[in-house]
Simulated assay, not measured.
Amino acid sequence: MSDYAINARNVTVKYGDFSALRDLTFLAETGKIIGLLGPNGAGKSTFVDAVIGARKVAGGSIRTLGVDPIGDAAKLRPDVGIVLQSAGFPTGMKVKDILFSWRRYVPGMTKKDVLDIAERVNLKYLLDRPLSSLSGGERRRVDIAIALYGNPKLIVLDEPTTGLDPISRENVWDIIRSQRDLGATVLLTTHYLDEVEALSDSVSVIKEGHITASGTVEELAASVPSPRASSVAASSEVLDGLANLLPQNGDGSSRKDDRLEWQSHDPARDLETIYRTCADRGWQITDVRVEKPSLRAAYAALVGATDSEDNIPITKDDKR
Rank of each mutant, 00 (worst) to 15 (best):
R177A: 08
S200C: 15
Y192R: 08
V205R: 13
K44M: 10
N244F: 03
V224M: 11
R141L: 01
S19E: 15
L187D: 00
L295A: 05
E218Y: 10
R63I: 02
L21Q: 03
T12R: 09
E170T: 05
L99F: 08
P78M: 01
D181R: 11
K96P: 13
V106G: 00
L24R: 09
V95A: 08
A298R: 01
V13A: 10
L76R: 01
S231K: 10
I33N: 04
K111L: 12
V95Y: 07
L242H: 09
D174N: 15
L154Y: 03
D318A: 15
L27K: 14
Y149Q: 00
E219Y: 04
T190V: 05
G136W: 12
H210L: 04
T30A: 12
A305N: 09
L302D: 12
Q284F: 10
V303D: 04
D240K: 05
G71I: 12
K44C: 13
V224Y: 01
E237Y: 06
Q284G: 13
L182K: 11
K96C: 11
K207R: 15
G137H: 12
Q284I: 11
I285C: 12
H210Y: 11
Y125I: 03
L239C: 01
S2A: 03
V121P: 06
P225I: 15
T46F: 09
R139E: 01
P107K: 12
G250F: 06
D270N: 15
S101P: 05
P90W: 02
